[in-house]
Simulated assay, not measured.
Amino acid sequence: MNDRNFHLCLLVSLIGILIWSVIHPKDLFTWFLEVFPAVIGGTILIFIYPKFRFTNLVYFLIWIHAIILIVGGHYTYAEMPLFNWFKDIFHLTRNYYDRLGHFAQGFIPAMIIREILLRNRVLKKGKWLFCIVVSMCLAISATYELLEFTVALLTGTAAEAFLGTQGDIWDTQWDMLFALWGAITALLVLGKYHDYSLRSSHKS
């Protein structure tokens, strides 16, 4: 499968999942809030596609992140069935799907930012690249928490499912910590493979 067909498969499958998600979601307002970033991000990627294409690795990671957001929008992060099952089986205190979402919020943007910085020759591989990518991911996470805070102030109890705190007073701090772990994990685990993907993409 060539790159274009691979990208098209990702897009078509994502549109199908998006259509499924809007059919009888648990809460339509929460669905909109959760899915909106994925729709905006996808629109931007389509718009810049003729001029700037990411590696297949990054496109695949973005696809995964979008699915996490869309599924969270359909069920809400506090009521995702699979993670409710985990909660019951392992006697957990909460549904941890939101933790997965915030881990991804660090993991996937780390690879996107890394690729943008390297391909535009803003930074070279090394400690500064690692530090700045992680810092930018933390900034994204903090900005998202401020966005949730703003939505909660403006809409009151209507944003309760969007916040997904599940009674945890430290939920915001845990969210940012998981995003931090996600960013660090991505760079340590996928850094070398990402370098290989960049070289392969440049040759083609």
Rank of each mutant, 00 (worst) to 15 (best):
F90R: 04
T150I: 15
V71I: 15
V22D: 04
L146V: 11
G101R: 00
L187V: 03
F107N: 07
I89R: 04
Y144I: 01
Y97C: 06
W31G: 08
C137D: 10
Y75C: 02
H102E: 00
Q166E: 07
C131G: 10
F103I: 05
F52K: 01
L14G: 14
Q105L: 09
F32G: 10
V58F: 06
G41Y: 15
L69A: 08
K203Y: 15
G73Q: 02
N120L: 14
L138C: 14
L123P: 03
T30A: 14
L154M: 14
R99Y: 06
L14W: 11
H7M: 13
Y96W: 07
V189L: 12
M176Y: 06
P37Y: 04
K192P: 04
L154H: 08
G126W: 07
Y196D: 15
M80G: 03
L14V: 04
G126Y: 08
I140P: 03
A38L: 03
I15P: 01
L118Q: 05
I169E: 06
D195E: 15
A142K: 00
D171G: 01
M176H: 05
K87M: 14
I40R: 02
I44V: 13
F90D: 08
A152V: 03
F29N: 11
G156R: 01
A183C: 00
N95M: 00
V189R: 05
G182Y: 05
E160D: 11
L153Y: 08
I116R: 08
M111Y: 06
S201P: 04
R99I: 03
Q166M: 03
R53M: 08
G41N: 09
T172R: 01
G106T: 02
W20L: 13
I40C: 12
H24P: 02
G164I: 00
F83N: 00
G16D: 07
I44A: 11
G164P: 00
L163E: 10
Y196F: 14
F29S: 12
C137K: 00
L69C: 09
A66N: 09
F54C: 02
P37S: 06
R119K: 12
I67V: 05
L45G: 04
L146M: 12
L138W: 12
F162H: 12
T93M: 03
Q166T: 00
L147Y: 15
T76H: 02
T55E: 10
H194Q: 14
S141W: 02
L190N: 03
L153R: 06
T155W: 11
P37V: 01
D27P: 04
A161S: 14
I17Y: 06
I23C: 10
